[in-house]
């Protein structure tokens, strides 16, 4: 009787774990489909403002992927830096130049076709390369667990092993700021 009950609970646990994994996979596929659809919409929309808004959707989907991979710091930084700062800069420039009416001249259809075919060729070659890579078979990315993506571990590594690149990046920002001001100055 006791053993039967334990067995039953074990079975319940197994079902719950499988359900969890099923939900996780569904989430991953949903986010990927959303990201690819939005990326295609970035290309095909005529109005640049709509392109920017679709690109923000892509960034949100990629942040969702980061959260599922338990890289929480990168998820937040991706939202703040990309969706928050860079995309606002793009939107600001587009509205400053009054480009929201589409002014793009028609391009030859065969040029578009050539672009799509060459991108598709790249995709095909890389996919066939990955399909026959034996080193990658059986490897899996750790989902939901693992604490290397937490800010504690990343901060420890950033301020001990990677402190020189960190300081150099501040110099990079200063030079980028000076460069942007010099380029954007009148005359």
């Amino acid at each position: 009787m006791q053993q039967q009950k334990v067995q039953q609970e074990y079975n319940y646990c197994k079902v719950i774990i499988q359900l969890n994994r099923w939900i996780l996979y569904k989430f991953v596929f949903l986010l990927s489909a959303l990201a690819i659809f939005s990326a295609i919409m970035v290309l095909v929309s005529k109005n640049p403002v709509h392109s920017v808004l679709w690109l923000i959707v892509v960034f949100f989907a990629i942040s969702g992927h980061y959260i599922l991979l338990n890289a929480q710091f990168l998820a937040i930084v991706n939202l703040i830096v990309y969706a928050g700062a860079i995309m606002v800069l793009f939107l600001f420039v587009i509205m400053l130049m009054n480009l929201n009416a589409d002014a793009e001249p028609r391009k030859n259809w065969w040029m578009k076709l050539a672009g799509v075919v060459s991108g598709g060729c790249f995709l095909m070659v890389m996919v066939s390369l990955i399909r026959q890579a034996t080193e990658l078979s059986g490897k899996a990315a750790l989902m939901k667990t693992g604490d290397i993506g937490l800010i504690k571990n990343l901060g420890k590594a950033l301020f001990s092993d990677f402190v020189v690149p960190f300081e150099i990046s501040s110099v990079l920002f200063l030079s980028a700021m000076v460069g942007a001001v010099v380029i954007g100055k009148k005359d």
Binding site: I36, A39, I40, V42, L43, K107, M111, K112, A114, G115, V116, S118, G119, G120, F122, L123
Partner: peptide
């Protein structure tokens, strides 16, 4: 690849 196609087209 979608990015490459966008840059090219």
């Amino acid at each position: 690849s979608i990015g490459i196609i966008g840059v090219l087209t």
